[in-house]
Simulated assay, not measured.
Amino acid sequence: MPIKDQVKNFARKLVEDRPDAAALRALVRARRPAALHFRDDGIVPNNPKFPALLYRGAVKLTSRRFRPDVIIDTMFDANGWGRSWRDTVYDFVHYHSQIHEVMGVARGSARIECGGIKGRILSVRPGDVLVLPAGTGHRLIESSRDFLVVGAYPQDGTYDECTDTRERPDAIKRIAKVRKPKTDPVLGRGGPLLRAWRKERPRSRPGG
């Protein structure tokens, strides 16, 4: 998301009631994510090494004290994923060539296309968390009117937004240079992302 959205969210966090470490631990579920591999489809590069990860029901959002978006935002921040924003997902295909991205569903439901038109459409609901390695194409297909996600990024990397196929040659070079994050956005330093992204991905057919 643009810097202005991240600044707006930073100002919001200064005044909202956020869970402390103990409360946050009680709200996060240890989940093994599904790994989704996407190959370059000729339009969207996707990531040659790291799979997208989908954590189902990773966060308990039934707290009466803390809002769902606050819980997810606090979780990402506690695990070293910052520069957060809260909004919906763009409805056009785009990807980030210099940074990884995580999105947690705080409210509503949606169908999100990942990996480009030859990828997969994922149905997501509150508590789900989706980690997109640099280069992974994504867009919103449809959503409920109340759909809200919290997005964030690891400490290393620069936000950019790629939509033009003319950017592909340079974008592919940038994607290859994006380093693995130091922490899992859901479960921190011991989280499954670090194991799932430890080795290069196996060969797979386009889109799967």
Score class of each variant (00 low, 15 high):
Ile99Gln: 12
Leu36Trp: 12
Gly108Phe: 08
Phe38Glu: 03
Pro19Cys: 12
Val105Trp: 02
Gly57Pro: 05
Leu27Ile: 04
Arg86Gln: 13
Lys173Glu: 14
Thr163Ile: 12
His94Met: 02
Phe76Arg: 02
Ala22Cys: 01
Asp184Ile: 01
Cys162Arg: 15
Glu16Trp: 13
Glu101His: 05
Thr74Pro: 03
Val129Tyr: 06
Lys177Ala: 15
Ala196Arg: 14
Pro68Ile: 07
Glu101Gln: 14
Arg111Met: 04
Glu161Pro: 00
Phe50Asn: 11
Arg195Gly: 00
Pro202Phe: 10
Phe50His: 14
Asp69Arg: 10
Phe92Asp: 11
Arg64Gln: 13
Pro19Lys: 12
Ile71Gln: 04
Ala176Leu: 08
Ala22Gln: 14
Pro51Ala: 05
Phe66Trp: 14
Asp128Val: 10
His138Trp: 03
Lys173Phe: 00
Ala26Lys: 14
Arg195Ala: 15
Asp170Val: 12
Gly104Phe: 13
Ala26Val: 01
Ser123Val: 06
Arg145His: 12
Arg168Gln: 09
Val124Lys: 05
Ala171Asp: 12
Phe147Leu: 04
Trp197Tyr: 03
Phe50Leu: 12
Gly115Asp: 10
Arg168Ala: 10
Gly190Trp: 02
Phe38Trp: 04
Asp40Gln: 02
Asp69Asn: 10
Ala22Ser: 09
Lys118Gln: 15
Lys199Tyr: 11
Arg65Val: 08
Ile43Val: 13
Ala30Ser: 11
Thr183Ser: 15
Tyr55Asp: 06
Arg168Glu: 10
Ser144Phe: 05
Met75Arg: 09
Ser109Asp: 09
Ala26Arg: 14
Arg32Met: 05
Val131Phe: 12
Ala34Asp: 12
Phe38Asn: 04
Gly116Ile: 11
Arg203Asn: 11
Arg189Lys: 15
Arg125Phe: 08
Asp146Thr: 09
Leu187Lys: 07
Val89Asp: 01
Lys182Asn: 09
Ala152Leu: 10
Asn46His: 09
Val102Phe: 03
Leu53Asn: 01
Gly116Pro: 05
Pro181Leu: 07
Thr88Phe: 00
Pro19Tyr: 06
Leu193Arg: 08
Leu14Met: 13
Arg203Gln: 15
Ser144Met: 07
Val149Cys: 11
Pro192Gln: 08
Phe76Trp: 03
Glu200Ser: 13
Ser63Val: 06
Asp73Ala: 12
Gly137Thr: 04
Trp197Asn: 08
Trp85Asp: 09
Ser84Asp: 00
Asp87Phe: 09
Gly157Cys: 08
Ile43Ser: 08
Gly127Phe: 06
Ala78Cys: 03
Ala34His: 06
Arg86Pro: 06
Asp87Asn: 13
Lys13Ser: 10
Val44Met: 04
Ser204Phe: 10
Arg125Met: 09
Arg166Gly: 15
Ile172Gln: 13
Tyr95Phe: 14
Glu142Phe: 00
Pro45Leu: 01
Pro51Gln: 00
Arg179Gly: 15
Leu24Met: 08
Val124Cys: 06
Ala171Cys: 03
Asp77Met: 02
Ser109Arg: 15
Arg107Pro: 00
